[in-house]
Design a protein around this nucleic acid. Sequence first.
DNA 1: TAATATGGATAGTGTCACTCTCCAACTATG
DNA 2: CATAGTTGGAGAGTGACACTATCCATATTA
Lengths: 225, 225
Amino acid sequence: MRISELSRRSAVPTATIKFYLREGLLPPGRPTAATQAEYDETHIRRLRLIRALVGVRGLSVSAAKEVLDAVSSVKTDTHGLLGLVFGIWPASAARESGGPRVVGEPARPTGEADGTDDTSDTYAVDALVSAMGWQITEHSPARQAITQTLHTLRSLGVEYGWEDLLPYAELAARTAVLDLDQLEGQDDPLDKAERAVLLTFLLEPALLALRRLAQEAESAARHTD
Amino acid sequence: MRISELSRRSAVPTATIKFYLREGLLPPGRPTAATQAEYDETHIRRLRLIRALVGVRGLSVSAAKEVLDAVSSVKTDTHGLLGLVFGIWPASAARESGGPRVVGEPARPTGEADGTDDTSDTYAVDALVSAMGWQITEHSPARQAITQTLHTLRSLGVEYGWEDLLPYAELAARTAVLDLDQLEGQDDPLDKAERAVLLTFLLEPALLALRRLAQEAESAARHTD
DNA sequence: TAATATGGATAGTGTCACTCTCCAACTATG
DNA sequence: CATAGTTGGAGAGTGACACTATCCATATTA
């Protein structure tokens, strides 16, 4: 099929499809002439995946590209596959770790305005990880996210340590078991990778939503007793 | 203190402070003259909270305003407080529920391009909620987020129903118990509201990060067996 | 062969979170 | 009390981002 049919069938405007092609999110079609190319079902599928990651999950286009590249890079190496997928962190983390997105300002010299240090939180996360008995890559972006959260909470005067996160970590471990179980069926490494991506990224908003619902229910339950 | 000291102590540029004042995120200082106002510790605290919600959690400024307004609106009404806080959904959900953010396009008539319907997923979420025995407001934004996720997964050819979310919901329920426990100490309703906001919103990235770490660990564990 | 569609490149748009510039009204200093 | 530096407030400007629109030299279709 050509681009207009691809557009119609995927409900993505042709201009946007061209944009995704340019950004390398969508692989080019098979060229049949100088100004003609042929697309197939895989392109429709890929487009839906892109829209899901960007639109539903809210990933930036560049983050989505990272994710998709990781999925495509899976040839036969079933081994590092999941580590690769699980190691990807949405690009928004970049602006998180560097503080609020600053554009023009030449990094004002006054670093921490309140004297709190970040290093102690790094050790706290190490303690948490080893308390759970987890084998984790040294420089996982997820580690930084937790460090950041602990640091922020502390700077806001909330007493919060890694011990407080431990019970959450236990629940996260069980969540991970569920997640991995969902991948058992898939034999084709590419399908497995795609499913891992979908269940990891697309489930994130749903899991947060479940927490909210549960909070509301728990709050109601405690108030009516 | 005046704005320059507030800026120095909070590490937020004065221009940005002025912006937050204009947007209503930060309450105005006590005016001492036509072009002079006095700020205090509460403003520093509020600034840190804003930066945490916007910078760390990644809320939009308008979403942060909603959150902050909700916290401030708590006078003595300890009752609906938590429901109010838990019911807030980041503004990004708005663009999620409406599909990818479309700006110029006049809403192309071709609705669902692949024929899948959204209504069935709405019932699925109802089933999930009642299976958990949760008492939830009818039009909670969190419901929509889950509906959306189920719908997206289905449109991508992944067989996924509310039954698959049930075990996650059980874990979410336990998470909520932890969350609510953390609020028990606070007696002052305003402190309680602020703590609820912090632990709900700021913990979200950390919880997702914990899942990633747990996934990596679980994946490693399964592969070395 | 004329009307329409396509791939590719370039430029433009709307939104967002700031950031900069002005200016009249202060305040601190000599 | 003169003057240099600071404010609050308003409005315009900026850079990043995710598209979206316009061109144009082919290609295809009627």
